[in-house]
Simulated assay, not measured.
Amino acid sequence: MTQQPHAAGRPMRIGVQIQPQHADYADIRRTVDAVEELGVDVIFNWDHFFPLSGEPDGKHFECWTMLGAWGEQTSRAEIGALVTCNTYRNPDLLADMARTVDHISSGRLILAIGAGWFERDYAEYGYEFGTAGSRIAALAEALPRIKARWAKLNPQPTRSIPVLIGGGGERKTLKIVAEHADIWHGFGSAETLAHKNGVLDDWCATVGRDPAEIERAGGAPRSPDDGGDALYEVGTRLLTVECDGATGYDLGPLKEWLAWRDEKNRNA
């Protein structure tokens, strides 16, 4: 595999997803301090109401109130949810929430967003689950509203808030990415991401977007030895390490990825 043109000049970045499940908030707070001290680039949580693994009714905390606290707690790393579920909140309200956390964090918020998929969240909190198609259509409708609301707010965001879109559907989702995203978070192997990068580049050509404007992101394998170099070669420049409260927020894998990042950037 050869490096992709869209990655030219971009540094390698490492994020961590501190999953807000199976832990007390004091543990989450300590982990946020620890990963920022280690030098992580982005600190994510997720936007769900119940655990996604382990005990289904185990401890769990809400996403966006947590991000406001992280905005005050941290000083360097970017923050966000991987990813916000679009249909849990009115798009204009979400825009205002994002603008507020942007100001709290002095311009370090990433608005990471997706169409949503976890049916239990919808059922127990009274949201209409709909279909995959209807949720993707709602995402396409929401993003222009979010950007329009940012332009109207007083004060406006401190910066052009980066939009990360998660998902890999080639007919609809990647078109939305080409139209609206600054970062695309895909899923799968290096080979899969290489193929979808090509599809995204084609959509960029269709909508008149320079594909180099979109940073390519994905989930980190267990260790860099499990395919880190291949992901780098296909142009992935933001890899996020999962960190679960059920494991006591073990930071060993994250430390390996940060050392690998530093080596890649030194040799770039």
Rank of each mutant, 00 (worst) to 15 (best):
T2G: 14
Q3C: 08
Q3W: 12
Q4M: 11
Q4F: 08
G9A: 02
P11H: 10
R13H: 08
Q19C: 15
P20K: 03
Q21D: 08
Q21T: 07
Y25A: 10
D27M: 10
A34R: 11
G39Q: 03
H48G: 08
P56I: 06
K59F: 01
G68K: 06
A69S: 15
E72D: 07
T74E: 05
G80C: 08
T84P: 07
C85G: 14
R89P: 01
D92G: 15
D92W: 12
A95F: 12
A95Y: 10
M97K: 00
R99Y: 00
T100W: 05
V101M: 03
H103A: 11
S106W: 03
G107M: 05
A112G: 15
A112N: 07
I113N: 02
D121S: 07
Y122C: 10
A123D: 14
G126W: 11
T131C: 10
L143M: 10
R149I: 01
W150A: 03
W150N: 04
Q156E: 13
P157Y: 08
I161Q: 03
G166R: 09
G167S: 03
G168N: 06
R171E: 06
H185C: 05
G186N: 09
L193K: 13
G198P: 03
L200F: 03
D210A: 03
D210K: 05
R216T: 09
R222N: 14
P224K: 04
G245K: 00
E256P: 05
W257L: 07
A259K: 14
R261E: 10
R261S: 09
D262V: 00
K264N: 05
N265Q: 09
